[in-house]
Design a protein around this nucleic acid. Structure first.
Length: 893
RNA sequence: GGGUUCGUAGCUCAGCUGGGAUGAGCGCAUGCUUGACGUGCAUGAGGUCUGCGGUUCGAUCCCGCACGGACCCACCA
């Protein structure tokens, strides 16, 4: 590797080269090592059909930061990667592809369809993986898994059979959500409620008289948003407490069109306040009505085919589409004089989260997981803190779900997925659940067995992910060593789909929880705070960003300044800023390398030189503090705060101050020892800072680190810096801060006085405090190199300083610049007057606090002491400024 | 309907458990061919911390109400 670094940082080429190096070196790979502490993370498996979007990029970045950090801390770190078969979305994609070729899925048949799907998976399944690599993800690719690979299939079957045997899985006739386009049932979590403009049709059914004739005067009026469901009505309900309808229970109404007589029932479910207080009951097509129907023993009449057309129970409407039928029914009711009115109405309609088709609730025989028992340990785990949710507010969402848990519908009428390991005996109807295909029916002994055609909900296999990927159901060394995993990183959106289901599945199958911490991060939004979505077209392609600015810049942008849990806005300017930072550290490194002499020994990691200048101690101490703070933040998973601190340190303290302070020592003649000390600090602080930054910006830090220290194989496997007591120099930290303040003060004066930058000005520093004078005497050089001083003198009083000299007061000292061309004394007076006013304000505030007895009594002693010191400093500055002001005023006269 | 969360500089956001907002980045203004970097350096302007009450010696921070956003859960015909 050349020590010649390019003038501007260019990630192109470099990132791919380094990634290849890491992969080849096997640094991503982990094997069980008894006695060594481990750190395990499983990736939320992205869909095989997927392409990387910003949400993934954020998710993977957070995980990679944790993983790289822990790896550097010496943990045997495994980041388990893989992809998810994504039952519905893959199946939809393949079906559409076939459609374009004019092939119908059902004509093609199950076998051929699956062949096609696997072919598709082979062809495109690798896309997302290669994109993850572009990001720099340090996954153990040798262990890559797929939710439908051999091992996962076995795991799914095993889990299903065990849960069936324990009675947690059952097959039942229940009302479910049906997507007529995808032709499958859906779990409640897959239903998305969308507000839609619709109508409320007010309809009346005539009552049946005592003698069985249809009343022409008595009607029950109600409203509905789905008139077509009347075909399946089997009752009309009123609230038992409703005075208006007293005595109607037991009577019947005529269901028009179908001419069926249906009873009036009383049920608490009916809200008397809403509309007329009458509800039509369609048990087969509404979850609430289903419950009412159960309570009153009502008939369930299914009126829909799977494609949402009306079935034979719809009589003359059979075969008609649901919405066409709606129109026709309304029209007929109108003709019958039973339509009372139509009202515009906006309401929430359940849609399929994948295809946004309006779902139809209908009754089907499906497989369910009984949740009442399974959920208990999952609740307990979070309640008792065995699983920690970050941020804390996630708990409420979690319990909100667990408290209202309903049984989980796990069967899907699809082909792509894990086929349910259940067989039905055609002869005796026995259902057999088995790990392997049974030969004969254990009940009747015949062999007419057919396997359930359905597959399992994708999340059934994802729920096993933390242990199935490590070898379960076998008892493998990997499983024993790496499980339970440590941290799970994911977005809010799949807390119910995935996180909770992993927790109870793991507890059920493994007897333990799958991880101890879950980090929920927010959504990546666009510059206006909108969700990035395909339909809005506001999505930013992470790969395009990587191509333009580099993966490091993208990663930094995603985590900086934004803490986990809240949403973030993503836009180009922010990435540019990150890119600029990459360029900054690149150039700082370039500067340091350029200043190394031919054949000079590399200094990183060498013992600290015995003698050091104050600024050396300052930067070492500041870095040391940074190590402590950044690590503490990371331990609290405050990744954004941690990296912000590293960023500020590198850019401001290291580049803008330390490097500038040290330049004269690098060029100066006859100061080899001093130069060497400076070079030591430059190389070590740079190298250390690269380590702290490495989890966030893996590529550039690797390149710099390996150039800085040619013997190091990789920063990836170097050790994470630790706080060192011998590098704590609080005194030097304070003195350099004082110097910085003085330099800033002088620069400010020069600027406001319009002193040409090329003009060198003599500076007199006046301080009554010998300790302060010593600081300035030691830092003499800085006034010349950083503040444009032609010379600087340090003295106890203002002896010999011109009355009209410009002054600036800082805590402990006043600096004078005898600018002979200070013509505008009035302006200077004005400036000082303003300053004096500010100090007055400070003193008033300070006095108020220090004379406040309750403050003195209740505040911490350090706070009080601090306040006293502040007051003293302000008093001193105040007297200095007012003194100078007097002189100026006098000199003007 | 129930719940969560946010409202700080022109913009996007920090502000760690109540004690001076020397807040950050971008943008803006002024100056800078200083031997790493103009993807840079220096200096500066800009905030009644959404409003109103309350608790407190003291509130951007705690409580209540209002206004304005974001989100989650449930779903009523």
């Amino acid at each position: 590797m050349s020590k010649e670094l390019a003038k501007a940082y260019d990630p192109k080429g470099l990132e791919d080269r380094l990634y290849e190096k890491w992969e080849k070196s096997g640094y991503f790979h982990a094997e069980p090592e008894e006695g060594r502490k481990k750190f395990t993370v499983v990736i939320p498996p992205p869909n095989v059909t997927g392409i990387l979007h910003m949400g993934h990029a954020f998710d993977e970045t957070v995980q990679d930061i944790l993983v790289r950090w822990k790896r550097m801390q010496g943990y045997n770190t495994l980041w388990q990667p893989g992809t998810d078969h994504a039952s519905i979305s893959t199946e939809v994609r393949i079906t559409n592809e076939l459609k374009e070729e004019g092939i119908d899925k059902h004509e093609l048949g199950r076998e051929k369809f699956l062949e096609r799907a696997w072919e598709w998976k082979r062809k495109y399944g690798g896309t997302i993986v290669s994109q993850l690599k572009k990001l720099g993800s340090s996954c153990d690719w040798e262990r890559e898994r797929f939710t439908m690979d051999e091992g996962c299939n076995r795991a799914v079957t095993e889990a299903f059979v065990r849960m069936y045997e324990k009675g947690y899985i059952y097959k039942g006739n229940r009302i479910i959500n049906w997507c007529p386009v995808c032709n499958t049932s859906l779990s409640d979590a897959e239903v998305l409620y969308e507000e839609q403009q619709g109508h409320l049709w007010h309809i009346k059914y005539p009552l049946i008289n005592e003698d069985g004739s249809v009343s022409s005067t008595e009607f029950l009026e109600f409203a509905t948003t789905r008139p077509e469901t009347m075909l399946g009505d089997t009752a009309v309900a009123v609230n038992p407490a409703d005075e208006r309808y007293k005595g109607l229970a037991g009577r019947k109404v005529l269901l028009p069109i179908v001419n069926r007589q249906i009873p009036v029932v009383e049920d608490e479910y009916v809200d008397m306040e809403f509309g007329t207080g009458v509800v039509k009951i369609t048990p087969a097509h509404d979850p609430n009505d289903f419950e009412v129907g159960k309570r009153h023993g009502l008939e369930e009449i299914n009126i829909l085919n799977d494609d949402a057309t009306i079935n034979e129970n719809g009589g003359k409407y059979a075969g008609m589409d649901r919405y066409e039928c709606r129109k026709a029914i309304v029209k007929e009711l109108e003709e019958l004089g039973l339509l009372v009115g139509i009202e515009d109405y906006s309401h929430n309609v359940g849609t399929h989260d994948r295809c946004h088709t309006t779902v139809e609730p209908l009754i089907k025989k499906q497989w369910f997981v009984r949740m009442d028992e399974l959920i208990k340990p999952a609740v307990k785990a979070v309640q008792e803190g065995e699983i920690r949710l970050v941020p804390d507010s996630a708990k409420k969402r979690y319990f909100n779900w667990t408290d209202n848990i309903k049984d989980w519908c796990i069967s899907r009428q699809l082909w792509w997925g894990h086929r349910i390991p259940a067989w039905t005996c055609e002869d005796c109807g026995e259902i057999i659940v088995s790990r392997t295909a049974p030969e004969v029916c254990p009940k009747c002994g015949k062999n007419h067995l057919t396997q359930d055609p359905d597959v399992l909900d994708t999340w059934f296999s994802s729920a096993l992910w933390p242990f199935e990927t490590l070898g379960w159901p076998d008892d493998t060394p990997d499983l024993r060593y790496f499980f339970p995993t440590d941290v799970l990183v994911t977005g809010w959106d799949i807390i119910f789909f995935w996180v909770i289901r992993m927790i109870f599945s793991s507890y059920e199958q493994m007897g333990t929880y799958p991880f101890h911490t879950v980090i929920f991060h927010g959504l990546v939004r666009d510059s206006q705070g909108r969700k990035m979505s395909k339909s809005l077209g506001n999505g930013i392609d992470p790969l395009e960003v990587i191509g333009q600015y580099g993966a490091d810049a993208l990663r930094l942008t995603l985590v900086t300044g934004n803490d986990m849990g809240s949403d973030m806005r993503f836009y180009r300017e922010r990435v540019e800023n990150s890119r600029n930072f990459a360029n900054k550290i690149w150039n700082a490194s370039r500067f340091i390398m350029m200043n190394r002499k031919e054949g000079e020994e590399e200094r990183f990691g060498k013992p600290v030189p015995a003698s050091l200048e104050p600024e050396d101690k300052w930067i070492l101490s500041r870095f040391n503090r940074l190590v402590k703070e950044a690590t503490e933040n990371m331990e609290r998973y405050e990744l954004g705060i941690a990296v912000q601190k590293v960023y500020d340190f590198i850019w401001e303290e290291f580049c803008d101050w330390y490097i500038e302070m040290v330049k004269p020592r690098l060029y100066g003649e006859g100061m080899e020892a001093s130069r060497d000390q400076a070079m030591y600090c430059l190389e070590n602080v740079l190298g250390g800072a690269m380590k702290l930054l490495h989890p966030y910006m893996p590529f550039i830090t690797e390149e710099i680190f390996c150039t800085l220290q040619s013997g190091e194989p990789s920063i990836m496997i170097s050790s994470w810096p630790e706080f060192r007591n011998d590098l704590d120099f609080p005194e030097e930290e304070r003195s350099i801060e004082t110097i910085k303040e003085a330099v800033r003060g002088i620069r400010g004066v020069r600027n406001s006085m319009n002193v040409a930058p090329s003009k060198r000005v003599p500076i007199v520093i006046v301080s009554p405090d010998p300790a302060v004078r010593k600081i300035f005497a030691d830092g003499k050089l800085f006034f010349e190199s950083l503040a444009g001083a032609s010379s600087s003198a340090c003295q106890e009083d203002r002896e010999g300083v011109s009355d009209s000299a410009v002054s600036v007061s800082i805590p402990g000292a006043t600096l004078f610049m005898p600018l002979e061309d200070l013509v505008d004394i009035d302006a200077e007076i004005e400036r000082l007057t303003k300053e004096l006013k500010r100090l007055d304000g400070e003193l008033i505030r300070s006095d108020k606090m220090l004379s406040n007895e309750k403050f003195l009594a209740s505040a911490k002693p350090e706070k009080v002491q601090e306040e006293k010191e502040k007051k003293a400093r302000y008093e001193q500055m105040h007297s200095q400024v007012s003194e100078q002001l007097d002189r100026l005023k006098k000199s003007r006269q």
